[in-house]
Amino acid sequence: MTSGELPKSIEETQGLLDSAGYVADRSLATVLHLALRMGRPLFLEGEAGVGKTEIAKVLAASLDRPLVRLQCYEGLDISTAVYEWNYAAQMIEIRLAEAEGNVSREALANSVFSQRFLIRRPVLQALETSSAGAPIFLIDELDRSDEAFEAFLLEVLADNQVTIPELGTIKAGEPPITIITTNRTREIHDALKRRCLYHWLDYPTAERELEIVARKVPGAAEQLAQEVVAFVQHLRNNEDLFKQPGVAETLDWATALTELNEVALDPEMVTDTLGTLLKYQEDIDRIKGSRAHEIVESLRQDLFAQGQSPQTGPLSR
């Protein structure tokens, strides 16, 4: 498979993500493969920090295609998302025509509303095919935009086209590879979801998370990585937290501890660096101090009991 070409099977898709440093499970690879083959947008939902946005970035890098990113926010409208006319240049054009004299009104309107004066925003950029192929079009955090914009997207997603009243319809030569992410802060309308392939991105299993840490924080000691992952997994499964830590937080924490030259989890250090992992004060209060101590103790015992952990050195420093 040469670069830029789409993967032909589920295995190839998984391999593609893997080669770019994204550890994906087979379910995600299946859906992504389908999205690529069927030319349908991929609708990714999941908690913050599970790697939704990252997929688009990885895909762009590994397929060697441009990434067009549209960050959504309330009040996002056509002029910031799709296109805008260059008013200043248009005004000058009108004045020039005036100075020349006898230019017909129709000709003037035609020249003023031509491609020359069109400023392309992300959606329009996404419909352009470059030499590398259609771009990756990332619509990030769609739930932050308002319903009006969501309705506008229907045309783009279903037919890969945009209608500009003054110019006509612009259609993509090759449909972009569209990836939509949402955090579920609001329900997205069914009509839009229907046009996409849906996937719920869950927190990774311990095994996969360990692999992610090993890949992304290569400097982390093996025992540290294992304990960090076990700790985070314990927080997600057994502790009643307001906001569970995502993969991004795990990586931050592992990096922080590595920077501090830790080789294993130390309960005191856990309490001091908990801010990289948990982002709500009440969550931190619940875990810090004695609770952190207990968790570290119990997971040490578990890891030790498994006996598969390859570390040979003493467990406490």
Partner: peptide, 27 residues
Amino acid sequence: VEAVVISGLRNRDDLYWTLHAVFVNKH
């Protein structure tokens, strides 16, 4: 139907996720 034909499934899980992608649109 199109997805199942296209995806080139190997096992039961692939079928699961293929149909899941199309039929489910809420967690």
